[in-house]
Write a protein that binds this DNA or RNA. Structure first.
Lengths: 343, 343
DNA sequence: ATTAGCACTCATCATTTCCGAGTGCTAACA
DNA sequence: TGTTAGCACTCGGAAATGATGAGTGCTAAT
């Protein structure tokens, strides 16, 4: 973007943004001169503001209100104006305190992380679980339930567990199931779930002729038990945004809640972030999702030394406290990464 | 309750309730005469309504509005006035269609049930998962993760799975873990999780002297892995209630959402329902929860032939369509029961 | 280039007015 | 005695009105 902004207009723009972030009210020329120590008269500021509006950084809700930063302004702000602070001591403590695996399962850990993010940031926390399919299979197990139902348990390298109930026509004995799972564990060890899928297909071709029917059935079973839908997203702290003045009106509130009830939309967005490592910020309409109008997303990836696992972050209004939240998300991602590091 | 209501006043009360259920507006004497084929003048109806108000069945929002049914009125309505309809064909189909286990885990099934309830009823669906602790343990398994982390997997009779990560100081080999789980499976087979807890404590007493240290450690491990918090509740379809006129105002909306973000409160209510088998209805303030003002809950228990598993139902406004929803909840509970019946 | 001054705009809030649905009461009626 | 017509009254909600004041754009002076 053409950066022909004078130092002074940048200062003024920054002042306006930061004012708006705390007040949520259109800010007028007067306020700018007052709150900031700029030795300028309101009139001068007005001229600058008119320019900034022309350039698309500000917008006026109506003639005689102050001005409001646009998405473009926030973008400039996070890219070059904002001074990123470190994470405050107490926040750091709260994040660390939360980081513990013992006695929970991965799902719980991630859900709690999401809740923690929401409570530290005062916006909504969001955590996308590792894509199961990209994970390496660590263990597979069949458990016989009553009737002809079998429970299949898949454990991935990172410790996440998926289980499924499968109804069969055959009536396997417990011993059958042990044999089957031994066989499969041998066959599939060390493959990613995606690879497992292919491998199973190959083997099933062979099995028709070579193997005895039990093992061939084992292959079929495990085929059925591969997870298909596989994106789990935890959004916590919805009620935090209920107090924000920009969502005070019932209509707006409805929209938001409806948008987040169906998490599907978000998954696409998070997948994008998964590609780009590290911090990622979507401001308002940048996300190309109509439901996200007025909302910003700050994410970071969490990962082991070998591969990136998932995405976590914070969703808040576009006027969110970027300077505070960005470091929080960054730090949390690092801590979660460390937590999930195996070995 | 003193049932000195004439046949006519009952009819009128019923008419008012049913009117209010669809319109959500205070209903006046005129409307009652019009919509219902009662050959009465508004004036007569007014007299009756005044009596009903005196008896606590009706309330006037203000002098010149119509009247609104009280909780007491709804109670009378569901207890004796209302004619329970059967479940409509399409609804029955939607419920049946949803009932399938294959390829899902129990959690998913329950969550989808909750979603289904919300979509059929147009209110919120609620499902409380079986209390894990009351379940019989079917299988226990240790899986070695990286480092000194061990994944413990517990499978209950009903097919629900809980897993936990445990960090140990010892470094167990895979063989160790297999031995340990064999030992424990033998020891604990057929006990409920609650019994398991006690049994482990007993064994640990003995183990100190009798057994070799590996098994004693196995006992410790499994002790750690018993689930402590153990009430999972799925609430789906929150956005359904956003459109109800009684929650149109932002303040009320906030309350509701805040109430359901923390599900803890509800658990107590659902536990009560768990005790009483079959259909259970709480109307408005009857639940003794301030957040539930203006809301009613209809629940039923789902169970196997041996024991009751959990509770499911619908939450909606007090003026909800009882005649339609009660059969839906009932039928769903039956179907889910059948679905989870093992053998 | 900056600023003071000034006329103008427009959302917000409080006040008023008007309307009508609905009530309670009384008196007439079957 | 139970039912109804008639009537005065109440009160919330919508629409109209007006005052307030924050904020603007423009022009002319510094």
């Amino acid at each position: 973007m053409h950066d022909n902004l004078t130092e002074r207009s940048k200062q003024i723009l920054e002042a306006i943004i930061e004012d708006y972030i705390v007040t949520a009210e259109p800010v007028g020329s007067r306020m700018v001169t007052r709150r900031h120590g700029l030795n300028l008269s309101p009139a001068t500021v007005r001229n600058v503001m008119a320019d900034l509006e022309e350039m698309g950084f500000l917008a006026s809700p109506h003639t005689s209100a102050g001005r409001v930063p646009t998405d473009k302004a926030y973008r400039l702000y996070v890219d070059s104006l904002l001074g990123v602070r470190r994470v405050a001591r107490e926040e750091r403590e709260e994040i660390r305190r939360h980081c513990s695996l013992t006695g929970k399962d991965i799902g719980e850990v991630l859900k709690e992380t999401s809740r923690m993010l929401s409570s530290v940031s005062h916006y909504m926390g969001i955590v996308a679980a590792p894509r199961f399919a990209a994970n390496v299979l660590r263990h597979l197990e069949f458990v016989k339930l009553g009737g002809q139902r079998i429970l299949v348990i898949l454990v991935s390298q990172s410790g996440s567990v998926q289980n499924k109930i499968i109804e069969t026509t055959d009536n396997f004995s417990t011993e059958d199931l042990v044999r089957m799972s031994n066989y499969l564990n041998e066959l599939l060890a060390g493959l990613t779930i995606a690879q497992v899928r292919n491998r199973l297909l190959e083997e099933m071709e062979n099995a028709k002729t070579k193997y005895d029917s039990l093992l061939s059935k084992a292959l079929q079973l495990s085929q059925q038990s591969l997870p298909d839908k596989d994106s789990e997203v935890f959004i916590e702290g919805r009620s935090n945004i209920l107090d924000l003045p920009e969502f005070a009106d019932a209509g707006r509130m409805k929209e938001i809640f409806r948008a987040f009830e169906e998490k599907g939309q978000l998954v696409g967005l998070l997948d994008q972030c998964l590609g780009a490592q590290g911090i990622n910020i979507f401001i308002g309409a940048e996300s190309r999702l109509s439901q996200m109008a007025g909302l910003s997303v700050i994410t970071s990836t969490y990962m082991t030394s070998r591969n990136t696992l998932g995405v976590l972050g914070v969703i808040g209004p576009t006027r969110m406290g970027y300077a505070k939240v960005i470091p929080i998300v960054d730090y949390t991602a690092k801590m979660v990464s460390r937590l999930l590091e195996i070995e």
